[in-house]
Design a protein around this nucleic acid. Structure first.
Length: 588
RNA sequence: GGGGCCGUAGCUCAAUUGGUUAGAGUACCAGACUGUCGAUCUGGAUGUUGCGGGUUCGAGUCCCGUCGGCCUCGCCA
């Protein structure tokens, strides 16, 4: 046990503390040994303080100071002093003072770390994840995790003030084959049976509404066993909430207030509410995706009707077979080379586009290898409709609507970034609303819920839902920030009758609906209030607020793309004994 | 499951068309130095070029396989 007890942190001391006797603890950040005088930078999560060792103040601990190396853990007792003229360090909050050491205790030594614990040192993600304890010791990472804590704190305070109750829901729960792949946990006491880790607490929070909790929230871990991306981890955190006796606008207002509070309390910025809303159809038509980045224009335009008057077979055939031709105006890209355009063609190829038709806009009209197929009048109309000016580049994709949307949406973002059209300093929120309730899945030849099967149909579509499912709107809403879906929610179905009708449409017969979701159907029978809610991705939110692009930068212990943890080596093999207890034998 | 990029000293990277003993910066170690703060100066040590195979007179470099990291399509109600 150390004799020295911390009196101050390393970010704390100022000129007003001069002459105080203090004790600091922390990690040695750097050692500057001048032979007759030793300086060390002492670091903790609050900051850095310079400590000076002078042999005149004590030979014994001066010699100990000579043994110090980076990342040694020490306690230092000494006197705060103003730095001599010309030696003030304005880069440090504590740079006007230094501590003249009168005692030094090495609490622990450190091997030479595999990388330097500074924000500047470039290190591969692989190494950072392997030695995450060292990576997290860097002040940049500490700031991020503390920022994240403050966001969560602001969420809790805000929702608590609005009478929300934080209620925990099970982590070991029931597998629901719909949706993402489940993480399964075998049950020892029920051999052959499995729990699943929750993809979200969706059904539990609905049950809590039935139970009368009115306003629920939880900052909760969710699990999905799908392939990873920079923005996607197998376990991630949601800000989950649900309210009773509300409609869409109530939820939207609470969330807008929540975001405004986070910005005010954590970043110290005012944001404007309400956020603009656009319909799903508008978003798909103008941006090709349901989470549009509204920080720049370059909207998609449908030219199917115009190009019908042409001899360009690719366009005509596509339209004839139910496809469409849409395009964007890449303003000022008329100087792109053949190779540039080939690159763009390859880019949209990733998303299924079989080609990219292009026109350069020149002084006397359109120029391209395919202009000959387009009558002058059509060219004129195209130019007018696309608002093309000299020096622009018009790009078109002809295909099924889904392929056109996706490839042009991605192309738009690609060009927006390439041409620096995006103001990265702003936070652009929007709501996407009026989603269709169902989507038709060609592969399995049946309807699927676009959001999830508990989303309430819009009353307008209800009478003819069975006849025209694709025309029914959902009472759902997605929150979008800078082109990233932060989360989504809906008003839920709260009567067993409608819930059964939706299940039937989704091809889930009454019996299997009962096997899978019987508890929900039962609960809905006993006075379920109208209710709805939303879930927001906390990891994504924090990433965006910090203007980072990798979710792993705000998660203390993230997984690699293969869903492994490089620090603990999880997942790992287990003893045969453990498997035997679970009644599991591995296939070879 | 598909496509792509990467793997060289503890770390970050270099190494001509395949060609001599694989280098630099930094970290590390030793010595010097009483005002440094990316300390400085002098000296030193550091390699299974991820792993396995192949082609070749000769492979860090080319080919095949494999392992690992990253990006991406599919997937993610």
């Amino acid at each position: 046990m150390s004799k020295l007890k911390r009196t101050h942190t390393n970010g704390q001391l100022r000129m007003t503390d001069v002459k105080s006797n203090v004790t600091l603890v922390g990690w040695v950040s750097s050692v500057r040994d001048h032979g007759g005088l030793i300086f060390i930078d002492l670091r903790d999560r609050y900051g850095i303080t310079q400590v000076v060792f002078n042999p005149n103040r004590g030979k014994e601990f001066y010699e100990t100071a000579g043994q110090l190396r980076p990342e040694y853990v020490v306690a230092v007792q000494g006197v705060v002093s103003a730095r001599p003229d010309g030696t003030v360090n304005l880069n440090l909050d504590t740079g006007e003072i230094e501590v003249y050491a009168d005692a030094l205790e090495i609490l622990n030594k450190s091997e030479t770390p595999p990388f330097e614990i500074t924000d500047e040192s470039k290190v591969s993600l692989e190494l950072r994840l392997k030695h995450r304890y060292l990576d997290l010791r860097r002040s940049a990472m500490q700031k991020r995790l503390i920022f994240r804590h403050k966001v969560c704190q602001a969420i809790r305070e805000y929702l608590d003030r609005l009478n929300f109750v934080d209620i925990e829901t099970p982590v070991l729960t029931k597998s629901t084959p719909e949706g993402a792949r489940d993480y399964l946990v075998p049950s020892r006491v029920n051999l052959g049976k499995f729990y699943a880790l929750p993809q979200s607490p969706q059904l539990f929070k609905q049950i809590l509404m039935v139970a009368g909790y009115d306003r629920y929230f939880q900052i909760v871990r969710c699990f999905r066993d799908e392939d990873l991306r920079a923005q996607r981890q197998p376990e991630f955190t949601q800000m989950d909430m649900e309210m009773s006796f509300v409609d869409e606008n109530d939820i939207i207002q609470v969330v807008e207030g929540l975001m405004a509070t986070i910005f005010d309390k954590v970043i110290g910025k005012k944001i404007t509410t309400p956020f603009p809303r656009l319909s799903y159809r508008e978003a798909m038509a103008s941006y090709g995706c349901d989470a549009p980045d509204l920080r720049f224009g370059m909207k998609l335009k449908d030219v199917s009707d115009i190009v019908r008057k042409s001899d360009f077979k690719v366009f005509l055939d596509t339209i004839k077979s139910g496809g469409q031709v849409r395009g964007i105006n890449a303003n000022g890209c008329g100087n792109y080379s053949r190779k540039d355009i080939d690159d763009l063609t390859a880019f949209v190829g990733q998303f299924g586009a079989k080609g990219l038709a292009w026109f350069k806009v020149e002084e006397n009209g359109l120029s391209s290898s395919i202009t000959k197929f387009f009558p002058a009048e059509t060219q004129e109309k195209l130019q007018q409709y696309m608002e093309a000016r000299k020096g622009d580049l018009l790009l078109f994709v002809a295909d099924k609507p889904k392929v056109v949307s996706q490839s042009l949406a991605q192309l738009r973002i690609h060009l927006g970034q390439k041409n620096k059209l995006i103001d990265t300093g702003i936070f652009n929120f929007s709501w996407v609303v009026d989603f269709p309730l169902f989507d038709y899945n060609e592969d399995i030849k049946r309807y699927e819920a676009l959001h999830h099967p508990f989303t309430s149909p819009h009353p307008d579509g209800l009478p003819s839902m069975e006849e025209k499912p694709l025309e029914v709107n959902a009472r759902a809403y997605d929150l979008v920030l800078n082109g990233v879906e932060l989360g989504g929610g809906s008003i839920r179905i709260h009567t067993p009758e409608i819930q059964k009708r939706v299940f039937r449409l989704l091809g889930i017969d009454d019996e299997s609906a009962y096997t899978k979701f019987g508890f929900l159907l039962d609960a809905l029978k006993y006075g379920a209030p109208p209710h709805g809610g939303i879930a927001l991705g906390v990891d994504r939110m924090v990433t965006l607020l910090l203007q980072l692009d990798d979710i792993r930068e705000v998660i203390a212990f993230p997984k690699t793309q293969k869903a492994t943890c490089l620090m603990t080596n999880a997942p790992s093999e287990v003893d045969t004994q453990q498997l035997n207890e679970l009644g599991i034998r591995l296939m070879q």
